[in-house]
């Protein structure tokens, strides 16, 4: 696919709907004089500010995590970097077994790049999925010629002497040669530039039921928002696409004069693991509480 296939709207949409798109980095939010300050020093005043700055990939201070060829997979820029690195790569190592990790594995396999997938848990996504589902997906990953390494953690990333990655070493001491390392051990809210303002933050930007921050006229939505009092079965930070979309609809109502509470209802989500389409409605615990039981059925002719 091309970039235009992934854009939610055609490019004419913004101008037609009288939306100015500014491509700039915000370095500070001045809540007193109600303006945002850009990296180039310019300022922009606002009546209402909606912060939707998303996430950044987690890094845990691994040795070598800033070498060339080591990257996360979150933005268009990350994808462009991967396109640049991929043609010469023979092997990639993916660190962290979640949804971004498996999508990265699928992408790299589509270009016939060998993939080693380091997963800390004893099965893929075992801290989210029940045991049997985790097992099924782990098997499926292996069927797609991915070298899945369970209960394996990253020790360090090695330099080839020119600032490029040429291998990783696991905590077990094994050295795996590679030209690409993808860090996909989850994401965290991208709010470092907010910390200099008086907007209240914890892990994310703290918001109330109306998605409003501690400052009037400032709202936060999507991955970067931390809902102070989420409804039952919901987490405070939910970095998934549809919650961001719902939050956007809610805050649009609010700033247009129809104050609305954010109520996403029961938890649901969907994903795709290579060829397996996965949907979940309601909370399915990965560790079974005493008063619940699992029902698991698999077609006898499938692996």
């Amino acid at each position: 696919m091309k970039i235009e296939h992934t854009q939610p709207y055609e490019n004419f949409f913004w101008e037609k709907n009288k939306i100015d798109l500014l491509q700039k980095f915000v370095t500070h939010v001045d809540t007193k004089s109600k303006c945002v300050v850009f990296a180039d020093g310019a300022k922009l005043n606002y009546d209402a500010l909606i912060i939707a700055s998303g996430s950044v990939p987690n890094k845990y201070g691994w040795p070598g995590e800033n070498l060339n060829g080591v990257q996360g997979l979150y933005s268009l820029q990350d994808l462009q970097l991967l396109e640049k690195n991929a043609p010469t790569a023979k092997r990639a190592v993916i660190v962290g077994g979640g949804l971004i990790g498996i999508e990265a594995a699928e992408m790299l396999r589509s270009r016939n790049i060998a993939v080693t997938f380091l997963v800390r848990e004893k099965l893929f996504w075992n801290n989210v999925l029940p045991q049997q589902e985790s097992q099924m997906i782990s098997n499926h990953i292996k069927q797609h010629h991915v070298d899945l390494r369970l209960q394996t953690e990253l020790q360090e990333i090695c330099d080839d002497g020119n600032g490029n990655v040429n291998a990783i070493v696991t905590k077990g001491g094994e050295r795996i040669n590679c030209e690409i390392v993808l860090l996909t051990a989850g994401v965290r809210p991208n709010i470092d530039y907010i910390r200099s303002s008086d907007i209240a933050t914890n892990k994310g930007i703290l918001v109330n039921d109306y998605l409003q921050t501690n400052i009037e006229d400032i709202y936060a939505i999507g991955d970067c928002a931390e809902v102070a009092n989420p409804c039952d079965g919901r987490r405070k930070i939910e970095p998934v696409w549809y919650t961001g979309k719902l939050m956007g609809e809610v805050v649009a109502n609010t700033i247009c004069g129809k104050p609305m509470k954010y109520n996403p209802g029961i938890w649901f989500n969907s994903a795709k693991f290579f060829d397996i389409e996965y949907q979940t409605y309601g909370t399915v615990p990965s560790i079974l509480p005493d008063n619940m039981y699992w029902f698991y059925w698999q077609h006898p002719h499938t692996k």
């Binding site: 092997r91 016939n112 790049i113 060998a114 993939v115 292996k142 010629h145 991915v146 070298d147």
Partner: peptide, 14 residues
Amino acid sequence: EDISMSLNASSGLA
């Protein structure tokens, strides 16, 4: 026969 899940990837397209 490519049975490995590692090293140089088997190419289903070759």
